[in-house]
Design a protein around this nucleic acid. Structure first.
Lengths: 205, 205
DNA sequence: TTGACACCACTCCATGTGTAGTACTACGTT
DNA sequence: AACGTAGTACTACACATGGAGTGGTGTCAA
C-alpha cells in the first residue's frame, strides 16, 4: 500500500539527499533511506514505488530547500544597483549554497546518474533551466549591471567554485575563494558588449 | 600474488575509468573492472590490493590520457598572442576534454568519492593543483593576455560548462556553448586589473 | 467497525571478496 | 633435448553482505 503522510515523505526525501551526498547515487537504496531517516526497514518501500522515484523527487526537494524564500528575495531588491552590490550578492549566493553542502553534492550525484537515466536527465534539465532562467530574470528585474550572458557566465564559474570548495576544500584557501568571486564580478562587469547570440531567458523578454 | 604486466595493468585502469563513468564510484568493483576489461573474473584482484588502489591509480591514468603531449604543447606556443588566439585555444580545450567524456566523468566521480576518503582527497588535490599551476605557467610563458587570476576564472567557468555538456547536454545548444566560451574570454580579457591577492602559481614566478 | 499507517519478519535473490588451485608460456639450466 | 622454475592467465569455490518485495500485526482515530 502506498503511504501518503506528507511530513514523513519529506523526511524520507531529506534522508535521501543525505544518502546521495554520503553514499552516492548507487548507494541510494530503500534500506539506506530508512536507516538515514531513522525509520524501520521497509518504510521507504511503502512511500516510493522504486529507486527512480526517490531520485527524481529528491532532486525537487533540494531545489525546494535552496529556495531563498520570498522575504530574502524581496530584500534582494533593495540596495544600490551597482557592481559592488552584485559582488555582495554573489558572495551571499556562494555561502548560501555551501551552507547546504549535501544538497549541492546530491544534485551532482543526480547529474551523474542522469547520464544513465534519460528520464532523470529530462527532469533535471528542466529544473536547471528554470533555475538559470530565474536568475537571469531576477537579475534583469533588479536592474543590475550585466546582461543574460553575464549571469550565465557568473553561474558557470561560481558553480565550479562551490564544487571545488565542497570536494577539494584545500585547493584554494578561503580568502582566495573570496577574492576569486570578487575578481570574477569585477572583470565580467567591466564592460558589457552585446551578446553574440541570445542565451535562454533573453528571448523571454 | 601481485601481477605486474604493465599493458594489462593499464588496460585494467582504462576499464576502471569506464566503470567509474558508467556505474559510479560505488559501482567500481574488482568484478566490474574485470568485465569491462574483458578479462576473467579475479584478474583485477591480482593487480590491485583493494578498491582504494584502483581509485587513486585510475585518477592518475585520466590525467595521463588528457595530457596533450609535447607536440601539441609546442604547437600551442605558435601563433599570435592576442585575445582571439586565447579564444581559439579555449575552444580547443573544451573540445579536447569533451572528446574523452568518460575521463571527465570519472574524475567527477572521484571528486565525490574524495569527500568520503581523505587519502583520495589529498591525491586529487595535488593533481588538480598541479593542473591549475601548469595552466597558469603555460599561459604566462606563452605571453598571452591575462594574469593568473584570469586563467583560474577561465578554468572554473569552462569546467562547469563541460560538466553541463556531459551531464545535461540539452540545457544549452551547441552554438550557445560556443558563444559562451567566446563571451567568457572576451569579457575576462577586457581589462586586467591587478589581482587583489595572489592565486597559486603567481608566487611561483 | 473501518481504514490508514507504523512497524516487523521472512523469503528470494544478486553480487562481491578473497583465495586456493590449475594450466600455460617463456626462459634458463643441465 | 629434456627439465625445472617463475610469472602469469584463468577457474572455481567458500563465505558474507545486503537489498527487494511482500505479507502480516498492532494501533489509533474517525
Amino acid at each position: 500500500m502506498v503511504r501518503r503522510n506528507p511530513e514523513r515523505r519529506a523526511a524520507l526525501l531529506d534522508a535521501a539527499i543525505e544518502v546521495l551526498a554520503q553514499e552516492g547515487a548507487r548507494g541510494l537504496t530503500f534500506r539506506a533511506v530508512d536507516r538515514q531517516a531513522g525509520v524501520p526497514a521497509g518504510t521507504a518501500s511503502n512511500y516510493f514505488a522504486n529507486r527512480e522515484e526517490i531520485l527524481t523527487q529528491a532532486g525537487g526537494r533540494v531545489y525546494e530547500r535552496l529556495d531563498p524564500g520570498e522575504a530574502a528575495l524581496a530584500s534582494g531588491l533593495q540596495g544600490p544597483r551597482d557592481r559592488a552590490r552584485v559582488t555582495a550578492l554573489m558572495h551571499d549566493l556562494v555561502d548560501r549554497v555551501a551552507a547546504f553542502p549535501t544538497g549541492f553534492l546530491a544534485l551532482l550525484e543526480l547529474r551523474l546518474e542522469a547520464t544513465r537515466r534519460p528520464h532523470l536527465r529530462e527532469i533535471l534539465t528542466e529544473r536547471v533551466r528554470a533555475d538559470v532562467d530565474f536568475n537571469i530574470s531576477y537579475h534583469r528585474e533588479t536592474g543590475r549591471p550585466g546582461d543574460a550572458t553575464t549571469v550565465v557566465l557568473l553561474w558557470l564559474a561560481l558553480n565550479w567554485l562551490i564544487l571545488e570548495r565542497l570536494t577539494l576544500p584545500d585547493l584554494f584557501a578561503p580568502e582566495q575563494r573570496g577574492d576569486l568571486v570578487t575578481a570574477l564580478v569585477d572583470r565580467l562587469l567591466a564592460d558589457q558588449p552585446a551578446p553574440t547570440r541570445p542565451v535562454p531567458g533573453d528571448a523571454a523578454q
